[in-house]
Design a protein around this nucleic acid. Sequence first.
DNA 1: TACCAAATGATAATGATTGTCAAGTACAAA
DNA 2: TTTGTACTTGACAATCATTATCATTTGGTA
Lengths: 147, 147
Amino acid sequence: MDKKTKQKRVELFERQCRSQGVPFTVQRRAILETVLEFDNHPTAEQVHDAVTTRFPGISRTTVYRTLETLVQMGLITKACHPGSVVRYDRRIEVHHHLVCQRCEEVVDISDERLDALPVPDTSSLGFEVFDFRVQLRGICRRCRKKE
Amino acid sequence: MDKKTKQKRVELFERQCRSQGVPFTVQRRAILETVLEFDNHPTAEQVHDAVTTRFPGISRTTVYRTLETLVQMGLITKACHPGSVVRYDRRIEVHHHLVCQRCEEVVDISDERLDALPVPDTSSLGFEVFDFRVQLRGICRRCRKKE
DNA sequence: TACCAAATGATAATGATTGTCAAGTACAAA
DNA sequence: TTTGTACTTGACAATCATTATCATTTGGTA
């Protein structure tokens, strides 16, 4: 992610804070900037480790809380890994995932044909859909070699 | 899930155990049967609570281990919830999920057009894909009312 | 029936996440 | 600019989910 995109995301965050009456703190800014550095799907713990170099002494609790706040505000997303640890993703645009059923690794992919997915009408369920992800399940190269 | 389908799944399990030299124990049978009773996505803890009525005193550890075994054998799947608890799913056929971005509830849906998804060629990534799921992200009725 | 490899159960250990609350800070109002 | 206040932060404890360990038991086969 280039500098400009990152800066824009931070500015968007600041604007949303102002308009929603949410304090725009240095910690929150540092955490968002740190997540934007990851091109994969870091855990809260990994974000905490990374943000510590930028903001020494920042509390683990704050990182956990802020990540959830950022998700709620739509600035980052939660990645859907099968494992038992929550992972975050700076990517908010539509993209998709390859998930290995053996080692549970998740890799991002982009594919125009997947993006063109016909989103079904879910209004009867009361569900308003505004985004989607395709999860391709299979076995990765490494695990196939093992078997 | 009707009785016959359930029975067939158990028999399939037994056959796979025999052919793979995996002991077919009463505990494993009870756990599989219990998961098949759930029409949603139970956690290991929920499965343990439920299986206890059928098999009093069964160990929590055994439930955790067996659920993973069943996933590895392809008899059940892991559901991909955003939260930090692993959830299981008796459904092994292709189906899709509605995920509420507020309360994180996950609801199964079926849709023929989604099933007809053009699976992209991932061989260059060394990935062998044999299944996929679409995750429709949005906001559920209850959460929309709150907002 | 006896053997053995693998599973089970009890328990402890670990790891992730959340709850609590005193102290600090952002931001709006004066 | 100063002040007040609600919200956030950080330290720490508590909880919850999951995994590791190991002695004991059991399924499956010779």
